[in-house]
Design a binder for these strands. Sequence first.
DNA 1: GTAATCCTTACTAACTTTGTCAAGATTAAT
DNA 2: ATTAATCTTGACAAAGTTAGTAAGGATTAC
Lengths: 156, 156
Amino acid sequence: MNISTRGRYGLRALVELSALSREGPVNLRDLSEKQKMSIDYLEQIFNKLKKAGIVQSIRGAKGGYVLASNEDEITVSQVINALDGPISISNCYNPNLREKSCTGPATCVTRVLWKGLENTIESMLSSITLKDLRQEKFDFKLKRSRKNGKKNLLRS
Amino acid sequence: MNISTRGRYGLRALVELSALSREGPVNLRDLSEKQKMSIDYLEQIFNKLKKAGIVQSIRGAKGGYVLASNEDEITVSQVINALDGPISISNCYNPNLREKSCTGPATCVTRVLWKGLENTIESMLSSITLKDLRQEKFDFKLKRSRKNGKKNLLRS
DNA sequence: GTAATCCTTACTAACTTTGTCAAGATTAAT
DNA sequence: ATTAATCTTGACAAAGTTAGTAAGGATTAC
């Protein structure tokens, strides 16, 4: 999988931006000072966020960035997608990589597992918005059902 | 995060082993042929699985590996842990890495998110066993509750 | 004793991540 | 118009990780 610093930094910066940008555009220098990130790196990140339509930029002096939509309409999933690409646990069927391809979708049982896990993560991250984060109001619970009805204790 | 080929190969090999090892120990050459993996790589993998107490080895001619416990007592989580280390999405507080540490647990909101995600993944993976995989009988459902009561549509 | 197996360690090429750097383009304020 | 503040773009490099190969050794069944 791939939630890298780029994704995480970007998300943090956006939460900060979400809190600050009522007053108008926020420039990267301020963000970088508040969040202790390098401006250069933030520039890369906001470039991607802009291309993904998550923020808007205002150029020139007194410029900066604002959210392109409401803070409760921007999900963590969108942000991570923009910065790190789609969440993917197993790309064992991509013939371009060094990784030997597995025995194929029809016979490789574990593919179903990884795909299910990807979907679950995606669901979780799509359900949490910048506003949730800013207000620290979010929460997830997992309910599992197993066909054989057996239960395992969940570890730590 | 880090579910790598090592983890995935290992899991696949274990499911295969689980199916075959009723008859006695299974050697790596057979496993490697069945699953199209290199023996050398499998050796690395099974070494770790052995150290983690997931398989037992029988040395010498006619030797091989068997599961160290019942197939329904070995979880995916254990396997991934043994091969790839603990699941960790954000290690932004590890001072050894180049990654700049975030503003700290007390103030960095997104940490809570990543920690929650880690826990959820861990729970899911702890609840699925080799037997589930072998029989392809597993399934997960996610139930979310949000304190503000608002709902987002889940995107594909 | 020999062949089949596991055991251990070392290594390396490919790839990814995490930034840094430098030279622009645009705009507000004066 | 000039200047300073900002975003824009693309190149690059050091650090780190992953995926796999290789080689030789130890143990055991026969």
